[in-house]
Lab assay of single mutants.
Amino acid sequence: EPELVFKVRVRTKDGRELEIEVSAEDLEKLLEALPDIEEVEIEEVEP
């Protein structure tokens, strides 16, 4: 069974934007590691 992958769009407080694809596990780590995120948009990517 393929692992869930999420497309994550992040905007930081200083206005930088970042778009990455991460696994569910990595997404959890990412959110814990970035306390200064202003906006996060997450969508599931079809395998």
Rank of each mutant, 00 (worst) to 15 (best):
P2A: 07
K7T: 03
T12K: 03
L34K: 02
P35E: 14
L18G: 01
E32N: 12
V40P: 02
V45N: 05
P35A: 15
D14S: 06
A33S: 14
E38V: 12
E25W: 06
R9A: 02
K29I: 05
E28D: 09
A24N: 04
R16H: 08
E44D: 07
P2C: 12
V40Y: 12
E46L: 14
E21R: 12
P35W: 14
L18F: 14
K29N: 06
E46D: 11
E39S: 14
E43T: 13
V10Y: 11
D36H: 06
V8F: 01
V10N: 00
V40F: 12
K7D: 03
F6M: 14
I37R: 05
V10G: 02
V5H: 15
E46K: 13
D36S: 05
D26H: 07
P2S: 06
F6G: 09
I42P: 02
L31R: 04
E32P: 02
V10F: 11
E28R: 13
E41P: 02
P47S: 09
T12G: 04
V8S: 00
L18C: 15
E39F: 15
P35Q: 14
L18D: 01
A33T: 10
D26M: 10
E43F: 14
E25Y: 08
A24P: 06
E46V: 12
E21W: 15
I42Y: 07
I42K: 03
P47T: 11
V8D: 05
E32Q: 12
I37L: 09
V40K: 02
E21I: 15
E41A: 07
E44C: 15
E25C: 10
K7M: 04
K13W: 01
E32M: 12
D14M: 03
E41V: 11
L27T: 00
E1A: 12
E19I: 14
P2H: 08
D36V: 03
P2N: 07
V22T: 04
L4V: 07
V22H: 00
R9N: 03
L31P: 00
V45H: 08
G15F: 01
E17Y: 15
V22K: 00
I42E: 02
L4I: 07
E43Y: 13
E17S: 10
E1C: 14
E21K: 09
K29D: 05
A24W: 13
L4K: 14
E21Y: 15
E32A: 13
I37D: 06
V45I: 12
E38Q: 10
P35N: 14
T12S: 03
R16C: 13
E17A: 08
D14P: 01
I42F: 07
E46Q: 12
T12P: 00
E21V: 15
E3H: 06
D36L: 05
T12A: 04
L27E: 00
R16K: 07
T12E: 01
V8G: 01
E21P: 02
R11H: 04
I37N: 05
R9G: 00
E38N: 06
I37C: 15
E46G: 10
R9K: 08
E25L: 10
P47V: 11
R11W: 02
L27A: 01
P2R: 10
L18M: 09
E25M: 12
V22F: 02
K7S: 02
D36R: 04
P47M: 10
L30R: 01
T12I: 05
T12N: 03
D14N: 06
I42H: 03
E17V: 15
E39A: 11
R9M: 01
V40I: 13
D36K: 03
L18A: 03
P2I: 08
D14Q: 03
V45M: 11
I20K: 02
K13Q: 04
E19P: 00
L34Q: 03
E21G: 02
D36G: 07
E1F: 13
V8C: 05
A24R: 11
V45Y: 08
E21S: 08
E19M: 11
R9W: 00
E43P: 03
R9P: 00
I20L: 11
D14Y: 03
D26K: 07
E44V: 14
E43M: 15
L31E: 01
E41N: 10
R9Y: 01
L31A: 02
S23A: 09
K13N: 05
V5N: 12
E39I: 15
S23P: 04
I42L: 05
L31V: 03
S23T: 11
E3T: 06
V45C: 09
E44A: 14
L4W: 09
I37E: 04
D36I: 03
R16F: 08
V22Q: 00
E1Y: 13
E19H: 11
V40S: 03
I42R: 03
D36N: 09
E32D: 08
E44W: 11
V8P: 05
G15P: 00
E43C: 10
V40E: 02
A24D: 02
G15M: 01
E38W: 14
F6S: 11
E19L: 14
V40H: 03
K7F: 01
E43Q: 10
R16N: 05
E28P: 08
E17T: 14
E17D: 06
